[in-house]
Design a protein around this nucleic acid. Structure first.
Lengths: 100, 100
DNA sequence: CGGAATCCAAGAAGATACTG
DNA sequence: CAGTATCTTCTTGGATTCCG
């Protein structure tokens, strides 16, 4: 698992940054996330979550209830990664002001 | 121009991180970059460079000579961005060691 | 409700040829 | 040498359906 994969497979895919942010904000269930992201399909959301788990950015907890309940939350690694993403956001905001 | 674009259109595309690194290391001409990246086609390299210029990560200088010469170098914004990319690299390396 | 499977449309990338 | 255009191929994302 190469480091550039984190950019290509996680951060660079559509919805990914927004998804990580929502999870960081405490929106943890797939149904809620689907509504919060507004535009994402259930299939793509599911794929994204799976990948975030695979890269240990997010952790999945399964509650064996009826109806089924599942929760996702950021790992420590995920939290640090998100903090770095925010650095980019701030850097970009500053650079945009200065442009032209 | 949204911030997530930087992830989706710049950092998340194949070759992009490697390309930024090479430019940062002083490899500045398209022909050299094409050889340095080994696997990239001239067309895709050209598209990537164009986009990096568009996002002000890289600056293009044209020397009107025969044969034509062109050089790309990181802008201050690009340098800071690359520094953040390196943070992710280090963070990931640490997290990988701790895994399992 | 969460998630996997299927099928289809849109976009990204590779190969090649061509221009200034 | 740098860059564009065209064509083809592969990957990604969207819509729908079905299962536990």
């Amino acid at each position: 698992m190469d480091t550039t994969d984190i950019f290509e497979k996680c951060l660079g895919c559509r919805y990914m940054v927004a998804l990580m942010r929502r999870i960081g904000e405490g929106i943890q269930r797939p149904g809620q996330l689907e509504r919060a992201l507004e535009d994402i399909s259930a299939k793509v959301l599911s794929e994204r979550l799976k990948r975030l788990v695979e890269y240990r950015i997010v952790e999945r907890t399964n509650f064996p209830e009826i109806p089924p309940r599942v929760e996702y939350r950021l790992t420590p690694f995920g939290q640090r990664l998100l903090a770095i993403v925010d650095e980019v956001e701030q850097l970009h905001a500053i650079a945009s002001q200065q442009a032209d």
